[in-house]
Simulated scan of single mutants.
Amino acid sequence: MTDNTKIVNQLRALVLLTQTEEQVARTRVSQARTDAVRRELNQNADHAAERTRLITEQLRALGGVPDVVTPALGRLSAVLKATFEQAAPLEEALLTDLQLEHQLLDRATYVKALATKAELPKVEHLAERLITAHKATVEWLTVVLAEEALGGPAALMPTPLQRVAGTAARAANAPVRFVANRVNEVLDSAQQVRDEAGDRLGEVADKASSFTGAVRETLTVGRSAALRRAERIARREGNRDAADAARSAREELGDVTADELPIKGFDSMSTADAAKAAKALRSPHDINVVIRYEETHKNRSSVISAAQVALAAVAKEVVGVDS
């Protein structure tokens, strides 16, 4: 097999993968958390389309048969990928995106080496351009994943099905799970002391009955009210872990008071001052709380973007990416 044949085969593979990359970027646009991310994703998709055109040009110049099927395969691959992702959490979809970018980067690097040996400067220049683009995308996806790992809202939002598959399902179920766990704890305690104090069984039954009523109430009231009630019961019972879990779920929903925010006087700040204060935050938890609160209250895009910048800065530190 000649070097040119190897290059042609790799360029064909790159066309297919780049078509998929373009369609994935267009799919992700609807998941963008901010207008800035939405613009970036649209630009990424347009740039991927341009890269497909350039790769195809080089294929023709090298005598490669123009492939009218590959673009359709690329689009189909992206559609199938997006469909399968709906049953997986957002982080799994992003990891798959990252895998695609790494494959594009590795193939472009290989093409550069082949082109250097074959003395094809135009192909070598194209490969360098691809390498630069895919390195930037790998870095961006790595930071987005780090943002998600740090507990803050990433640049991309999960779809409704991904939300169910991921952390939001746990948040929604937190109050019911807490009450069920308390029932189990009470019953377990009753079993341990049953032989020593038979009259305790009546008390346990009363508690179990009251918690059963609490379960019914949890299922009928609003989610925010249920979380607040779960937190209140947990603190009253001295169950700090359960109380903290309920509060975390509230924070994830943006259901906190202004007094609970990490920025004092946040509600009374101007948009510019609120954005400046949000951008100065360095705790992923605090940034997350502010973003969720802002999204569910005033929803000022500049404030949310500033907080997102703060989270990205922390994420870059964690993964060792230069700002």
Rank of each mutant, 00 (worst) to 15 (best):
A165T: 10
V221N: 08
V321T: 05
N239C: 05
E147R: 10
P66F: 11
E217C: 00
E50W: 08
A272Q: 08
S305N: 12
E91W: 05
T296V: 11
I131A: 04
E260S: 08
A313H: 03
A82R: 04
R292G: 01
A272L: 05
R28H: 13
E252N: 01
A310N: 05
V144D: 14
V319K: 06
L201Q: 14
A274D: 03
H134D: 11
T271W: 00
E148T: 02
P153C: 06
R33L: 13
S301K: 14
V144G: 00
D255L: 05
D195P: 00
P153L: 07
V319W: 07
H134A: 04
S301A: 15
R282I: 02
E22Q: 14
R12Y: 14
G320N: 07
R107F: 00
E128I: 03
L76C: 02
E40F: 06
I291K: 03
R38S: 15
A234W: 07
S302A: 15
R300C: 11
T56M: 03
V68W: 05
R38Y: 07
E101I: 10
A205W: 03
D199C: 05
V24P: 01
R300E: 14
L150C: 04
A274W: 01
M1E: 09
P66E: 10
K117C: 03
G151C: 07
E40L: 12
S224H: 13
E237A: 13
I287Q: 01
A310T: 04
P66T: 07
T137N: 05
A48P: 05
V309M: 11
T96K: 13
Q191C: 03
R240L: 12
T116V: 13
Q31T: 13
S248E: 02
H125D: 08
D322L: 05
A258L: 05
A168D: 11
E237F: 09
D188L: 13
T132M: 10
P121V: 04
V179S: 00
V79T: 12
L14T: 08
A230Y: 07
A278M: 04
Y110M: 11
W140C: 03
P121G: 04
Q192W: 06
R235T: 13
V123Y: 04
R232P: 00
V15K: 12
P71W: 08
S323L: 11
Q308M: 13
T116K: 13
R182M: 09
R53W: 02
E21S: 15
S224T: 15
A197C: 10
A48C: 08
R282T: 12
S248A: 08
D106Y: 13
T70H: 01
I7M: 10
R53G: 00
A230S: 15
T96Q: 14
G202K: 13
A275N: 02
A226S: 15
A169L: 12
R60G: 00
D35L: 12
L104G: 06
A277Y: 01
P121M: 08
Q162H: 07
S268P: 01
